[in-house]
Simulated assay, not measured.
Amino acid sequence: MCAIADSGSVRKAARQLGMTQPSLTTQLRRIEKALGGQLFFREPTGSRPTALGHSVLCRARPIVAEMRALVEEIASASVREQGARLRIGSTSSRAVAGWLRRLRVRLPETDTTIRIDVSANALLQMVASGQLDVAFVHEVEGAPLRVPEGLAEHELIAREPQFIALADSHPAAAQSIVRVQDLADDQWMVDPTVDGEWAGLRRIWAAAGINPRVVHGDYLTAVDLVTAGEVVTPCQPTARLRPGMAVRPLHGDPLAVRLFMACRHDGTPAAPVDALLADLTSAYMEIAWASVAYREWLVRHDGPLPVGT
């Protein structure tokens, strides 16, 4: 109807719409039959709307405009999904916020999303199945992850020591380095849903000859219990200090993880893998050197982070 009114004839409207004139005439008659009245006067010079036609056109034009806008919006969304989207997964890490900040500067037109999961194996599987483009995970020493075929590993840190979080009133907190044996009488909190965590802790307890009491829970809850003096718990060396809590390295660094970024062998659609790793490395180094306990550990171990390529 809008095409006929705008062009002034069924013949011209049919050409604009890519239809034959008889087909358009048939459609117009069906519309008129459905509405119960004539919509156009057919004249030698063309077609002009009737009073009913004017009334219908007033309603039709906004509908056509909305439909056109809807089609354009869907088309734009489709383009974004195909090329300008980056789906990131990560296990818990303070480096993630800085990584995202850098990626948004590098890729301002890209829709970047983040998924956090305690299970590194689950994240790796999501990358393999196409649900994520890239994942930043940690692998507990002695408990290898199940890396699906078709994924490439880009190592960030070959061996990151895991520290211990304890109440600042704990006798061991007075030491700069804590021995595992010093915590034999403490209750340890462990999150069994973190891949490899339970196996790693049992290994270091066995090596130290201790069998401590264990409570299972998540590490967010652990912070409150640590500051209350109820538990001690392993933590990342970059862990944020809270009032009443101390973070100390363990003697000999018996518990460690490997940090790496994984993506499919064909890379990611939004950015080169080298750029993603560079931004992640920069974000990690920022929070590493800002953490007092980790910075002191790094100085004792001769300076710069052992960043892999």
Rank of each mutant, 00 (worst) to 15 (best):
G83A: 11
G217Y: 02
L220I: 03
S76Q: 14
D133V: 09
L305R: 00
I204W: 00
S76A: 15
A143I: 00
A208C: 06
I74V: 15
G37Y: 05
G244S: 07
D224N: 12
R106P: 03
R159D: 06
E32A: 03
P161W: 01
H154R: 13
G46N: 13
L259C: 07
H54G: 14
A69M: 07
A199T: 05
T110G: 06
A222K: 02
V299Y: 04
L17K: 03
A51H: 07
Q162A: 03
L250G: 02
D195T: 08
F136P: 01
M1N: 09
A271Y: 02
T238Q: 07
S76R: 15
C235S: 05
I74A: 14
G18A: 05
I287L: 07
A51L: 13
G53I: 08
T193A: 13
M126L: 14
S55L: 11
T110S: 12
R15S: 13
A271H: 00
P304R: 04
R104L: 09
E73S: 14
A173F: 11
A184W: 04
R11I: 08
T281D: 09
A69P: 00
P44C: 11
A283G: 07
S23Y: 01
A270M: 08
G200D: 02
A239H: 05
V214C: 12
H216C: 15
H216L: 15
V247M: 05
T227I: 13
K33C: 02
V307I: 11
R94A: 10
V223M: 09
A199W: 00
H265A: 13
I88D: 02
F163W: 08
T193R: 14
L156V: 13
V64H: 08
R101H: 08
E141R: 00
S47D: 10
Y284Q: 07
V231Q: 12
T110W: 01
S9E: 13
V307R: 03
S47W: 06
V231N: 10
